[in-house]
Simulated assay, not measured.
Amino acid sequence: MNSTKSPDRGDGFRTLQAGQRSEVWIASTNGEAELAYGTDELLLEAPNWTLDGTALVLNGDGKLWTLDVSARELAEVPLTGIPELNNDHVLAPDGKTIFLSANDSHIYRAALTGGRAERVTKDDGSFHFLHGVSPDGKELAYVGIVGGDFTQPGRLMTIAADGGATAAVDAGPGHCDGPEYSPDGEWLYLNTESFFSSVPGHAQIARIRVDGTGFEQLLKSDTVDWFPHLSPDGRLASYIRFPGGTVGHPADLPVAVVLVSTADWKTPLHSWPLFGGQGTLNVNSWSPDSERFAFVAYPLAKQTED
């Protein structure tokens, strides 16, 4: 779910602080990480990896961009018919279509090459924050905020990818975010406060079957853990770890991107400490071969010098 001017809502696109940079990193499952692109002119967020493995898709300044991984060149995707974007965007399984959340609270569908976007969601009194597309491309998972009231917990929702009726999935009373389908389409992985509904700032990683059964906590920790992303082969997962007690998923604080095996969420395989948070790892950023994933750091000038 996007947040720009406060931890849990979006009212316009984020911009860099004075002396701050966006750094797009590509991490390997062996623990290495390489700086793919850096800029002090544009706040980039939430990389996706294209199906052909040649580029990353990011948002920045309310627009959509592609980053050629080999040439390290950034290009705008020319979209029309859509308001400013937030950082919730996911590619469809066909690799040609992208679903996007915009700052009018709706979800849109567009060609990755650009052109006019079509709205998927209806004016149903809720805000819609996209996070997942089913493996068959027929369904979307999103977080619904009823009446745009951000004092209320976000709810796990699904909708047909071509629009239509929405359905709620009961994931408990606590706020949830980041719902994403497993590669086999049987589960939705998410972060939730349902296991600690009386303790703000204790999001934990969980999963639930798409039919609403089997809700289970996957990782119990003293930190605040958000946005689980499974690799395409289902063997590994990445997530972002905030300091204990963090409310929401704010920007600009010390966090870590963590890699785990889906067979053992408790034991990190590798971790990458960085200055970031919001925008770092909001959506699935795995490469199609399950060997790499991308994230964004936002160091300040003094940190870069040090």
Results as ranks from 00 to 15, higher is better:
residue 196 F to C: 08
residue 45 E to F: 00
residue 74 L to K: 07
residue 14 R to G: 05
residue 174 G to M: 03
residue 272 W to C: 12
residue 15 T to Q: 08
residue 117 A to W: 13
residue 179 P to M: 07
residue 40 D to C: 08
residue 78 P to S: 07
residue 301 A to Q: 10
residue 12 G to E: 02
residue 89 H to K: 09
residue 82 I to K: 04
residue 230 L to F: 14
residue 145 I to H: 01
residue 118 E to D: 14
residue 292 R to A: 00
residue 293 F to M: 06
residue 23 E to A: 04
residue 269 L to R: 15
residue 53 G to T: 06
residue 121 T to E: 08
residue 10 G to D: 11
residue 90 V to H: 08
residue 136 D to R: 05
residue 111 A to C: 05
residue 48 N to T: 09
residue 127 F to R: 00
residue 31 G to L: 05
residue 128 H to D: 10
residue 242 F to I: 02
residue 113 T to A: 15
residue 28 S to Q: 15
residue 239 Y to V: 07
residue 165 A to C: 03
residue 305 E to D: 10
residue 38 G to F: 00
residue 31 G to E: 13
residue 15 T to K: 00
residue 232 P to A: 11
residue 20 Q to F: 05
residue 167 A to E: 15
residue 171 A to G: 12
residue 240 I to L: 12
residue 111 A to Q: 13
residue 140 L to F: 09
residue 8 D to P: 00
residue 252 D to K: 14
residue 200 P to M: 07
residue 129 F to R: 10
residue 27 A to N: 06
residue 17 Q to I: 09
residue 231 S to R: 09
residue 122 K to L: 07
residue 199 V to E: 14
residue 157 M to L: 11
residue 289 D to E: 09
residue 171 A to I: 02
residue 278 Q to E: 13
residue 252 D to S: 14
residue 132 G to A: 06
residue 62 G to I: 09
residue 199 V to I: 13
residue 63 K to H: 08
residue 302 K to Y: 03
residue 277 G to Y: 01
residue 159 I to D: 14
residue 72 R to T: 07
residue 53 G to L: 09
residue 260 V to Q: 03
residue 67 L to Y: 10
residue 258 V to L: 06
residue 187 W to N: 01
residue 36 A to D: 10
residue 211 D to Q: 06
residue 95 G to V: 02
residue 190 L to P: 02
residue 249 H to I: 01
residue 109 R to V: 13
residue 61 D to I: 12
residue 41 E to Q: 15
residue 205 I to P: 12
residue 73 E to H: 08
residue 196 F to E: 15
residue 202 H to N: 04
residue 228 P to T: 10
residue 11 D to M: 02
residue 97 T to L: 06
residue 244 G to L: 05
residue 204 Q to A: 12
residue 256 A to I: 03
residue 31 G to H: 13
residue 215 F to H: 14
residue 2 N to S: 14
residue 239 Y to E: 09
residue 6 S to W: 05
residue 102 A to P: 03
residue 286 W to G: 14
residue 251 A to S: 15
residue 63 K to C: 00
residue 62 G to E: 05
residue 22 S to V: 06
residue 291 E to I: 01
residue 109 R to N: 13
residue 185 G to N: 01
residue 150 F to H: 13
residue 172 G to Y: 00
residue 14 R to V: 04
residue 176 C to F: 00
residue 158 T to G: 05
residue 83 P to K: 11
residue 282 N to M: 02
residue 238 S to T: 15
residue 7 P to R: 07
residue 34 E to N: 05
residue 239 Y to K: 09
residue 42 L to S: 10
residue 62 G to T: 03
residue 174 G to L: 01
residue 61 D to G: 15
residue 234 G to T: 08
residue 63 K to Q: 10
residue 248 G to P: 12
residue 305 E to R: 15
residue 155 R to K: 15
residue 208 I to P: 12
residue 121 T to Y: 12
residue 209 R to I: 01
residue 30 N to C: 03
residue 51 L to I: 04
residue 64 L to G: 04
residue 143 V to P: 04
residue 110 A to Q: 03
residue 87 N to P: 03
residue 226 W to T: 05
residue 90 V to D: 12
residue 146 V to H: 13
residue 159 I to F: 01
residue 274 L to E: 11
residue 298 Y to H: 04
residue 133 V to I: 11
residue 280 T to F: 09
residue 152 Q to S: 11
residue 113 T to G: 14
residue 208 I to K: 06
residue 219 L to R: 13
